[in-house]
Simulated scan of single mutants.
Amino acid sequence: MATLALGGCGDDAKQPFSGQVLDNPYKVPATELVDTDGKPFSLADDTDKRLTLVFFGYVNCKDICPAVLSHLASAMTRLDDADRKQVDVVLVTSDPNTDTPASLRAYLDRFDSSFIGLDADFATIKAVGLDLAVGIDERDPGGHTTQVLGVDSANEAPVYWDADTTPVQFANDIHTLLED
């Protein structure tokens, strides 16, 4: 995926690539979390699409989380059907002491009913976050990193975007990453 991303950054690209390509991609752990249906879900084992966008956030977030999720939802509407079928969006709660699978599902449905919500105990979420360079503090769930990670089919996260990425930038980058 990193090669694809870099390949789309040349002069012939319609827009420059907005994400940050990592020289050393993060390895996605196979740690088991729980989805909003109460079923086990692993970011490594259960993300079958070519690209999974992963964001750590929480239901009671008043600013960054709804903005990022809104941008991701808008970006998904800008993709053609072929691209859209190859992408999942996942929210991992950074506040498992407050968020529940039901509250995550209701929250995500406000943006896009296909978005996946994941929960677990705090220690598990913190460990998964640390593997992906996302620091989470139990005393301050809003202190989580605001990046969106792009996870590929090799269970690596070779690219990330910051909270200021626009829907158009997300859509352009997603299309670029999915190009053969």
Rank of each mutant, 00 (worst) to 15 (best):
D131F: 04
S114C: 10
G129N: 05
D140C: 07
G38N: 07
G135Q: 13
P25G: 02
F17C: 08
L43P: 01
P96T: 06
D46P: 08
P96F: 00
G8M: 14
D80F: 03
L69I: 04
V89D: 00
A2V: 09
H175N: 05
V21H: 11
V148S: 00
T124M: 01
A154Y: 14
V151W: 04
R105A: 12
T165E: 15
P29I: 05
A13R: 13
W161E: 04
R50P: 02
R139V: 04
T100S: 13
T77C: 06
D140I: 06
A154G: 14
F41D: 03
N97Q: 15
T93K: 00
D48W: 09
T47P: 08
A5V: 10
A120H: 15
D99V: 02
V148E: 00
N24A: 12
A2Q: 06
A154M: 15
S42A: 13
K85C: 03
D180H: 15
D12G: 08
L108G: 06
V34A: 11
A171N: 06
T93I: 02
G8E: 09
C65Q: 03
K27G: 01
P66Y: 05
S94M: 11
T3R: 09
G57D: 02
S74Q: 10
T124P: 01
T176G: 02
A5N: 10
R105E: 08
T145I: 15
I64H: 01
D173T: 09
A82D: 10
Y58K: 07
D83M: 06
D23S: 13
V34D: 08
G19H: 09
K39V: 02
T98M: 12
V54E: 14
D35L: 13
P25W: 02
R105D: 13
I64E: 00
Q20N: 11
L149N: 02
N155Q: 15
I116W: 00
S114N: 08
K62V: 11
S18Y: 14
D45N: 15
T98G: 10
I125E: 00
S74E: 11
E156F: 07
E156I: 05
H144Q: 11
V92I: 10
L132S: 05
F115V: 01
A82E: 10
L72K: 00
A75H: 09
G7F: 03
V28L: 03
I136M: 04
F41W: 05
S94Y: 09
T100H: 04
D164V: 00
D164A: 12
D112I: 13
P141G: 00
G19A: 11
L91Q: 03
Y58S: 05
D23L: 07
Y107I: 15
N172Y: 07
H175S: 12
D137H: 02
L53T: 02
F41R: 06
G57C: 08
G19F: 07
I125Y: 00
L149H: 04
D99F: 02
G38I: 10
A123Y: 01
T124K: 01
S114L: 12
L177S: 05
G19W: 06
G129Q: 03
D99Y: 01
A106N: 13
I136N: 00
H144N: 09
C9L: 12
P16K: 12
S113K: 14
T166R: 01
Q169P: 07
A2I: 13
Y107R: 11
T165G: 15
P141H: 01
D109S: 12
H144F: 09
T36E: 06
